[in-house]
Computed example of a mutant assay.
Amino acid sequence: MNVLIIYTHPNHQSLSYAFLQEAILGNKENAKVAEVKVLDLYEEGFNPVLVFNKEKRRRDMHADPELARYREQLIWADKIVFIYPIWWGRPPAMLLGYIDQMFAAGFAYKDTGGLLPEGLLKGKSVVCISSMKGPAHYPLYWLNNAHKTLMRKALFNYVGIKQVKFFEFGSMESPRGRHKQKLNKVYRYFKTLER
């Protein structure tokens, strides 16, 4: 199994970075994992801004040569892991800009003329590891589960990815946030992952 981890946080002293380290360690200790690659969007200097004009059209985004390396990473991966904080009830703008560009028509899905497209990323699976300042149930009760709905239904299911797991950790700025237990939970998940 090839694992691509997409890390989105500007600070390497953050809890998100600690989750990244546990995910890497767990994957490296898992005999079922052949290789792990990490894409750090901030360190990479990924440009999340969409540009469409006479020379750069949206319908051609699936073949944009500047994004070819990132498309190859997604094709290579059997499992895609996203690690990010939840800010204002959703992933950071940096990650949303990556999603806007990478999950393009002609690459991630194909219009069929029907209600839903044909997902072109079938067979892959996704894990989303997110943390937030608010309590763990805040997105469910206050936001009608907007974060999970956005990621699972509006994105991953749309492009053919049906297997999606969430680790949505709340109260992460509290001294009672049980950070060690949550970090260990992520490590153990990847160490024992079958598929």
Score class of each variant (00 low, 15 high):
4 L>G: 03
6 I>T: 13
7 Y>G: 04
9 H>R: 08
15 L>M: 10
17 Y>F: 14
23 A>Y: 02
29 E>S: 11
32 K>T: 10
32 K>L: 07
37 K>D: 03
39 L>A: 00
42 Y>N: 10
44 E>D: 12
45 G>R: 05
47 N>A: 09
47 N>M: 05
48 P>M: 06
49 V>M: 13
49 V>E: 12
51 V>T: 13
56 K>T: 13
57 R>L: 15
58 R>D: 09
64 D>S: 09
66 E>R: 11
66 E>G: 10
67 L>R: 03
69 R>Y: 10
75 I>L: 14
76 W>R: 06
79 K>M: 13
83 I>A: 14
86 I>D: 05
88 W>C: 05
98 Y>G: 01
100 D>H: 07
102 M>S: 04
104 A>G: 09
104 A>K: 06
108 A>E: 05
109 Y>T: 06
109 Y>F: 14
112 T>A: 08
116 L>M: 14
118 E>S: 09
119 G>E: 06
121 L>G: 06
123 G>M: 08
129 I>F: 04
129 I>T: 07
130 S>D: 03
130 S>W: 00
133 K>L: 08
134 G>V: 05
139 P>Y: 07
139 P>R: 05
139 P>F: 08
141 Y>H: 11
145 N>E: 12
146 A>T: 02
146 A>R: 03
147 H>P: 02
148 K>A: 15
149 T>W: 08
152 R>W: 00
152 R>A: 15
154 A>M: 12
154 A>S: 11
154 A>V: 03
156 F>L: 10
159 V>Y: 01
160 G>K: 02
162 K>M: 11
163 Q>G: 03
164 V>N: 07
167 F>I: 11
171 S>G: 10
171 S>D: 13
176 R>H: 10
176 R>N: 14
177 G>A: 13
180 K>N: 10
182 K>H: 07
184 N>H: 12
184 N>Q: 13
185 K>A: 15
185 K>D: 04
186 V>G: 05
189 Y>S: 08
189 Y>M: 11
191 K>I: 02
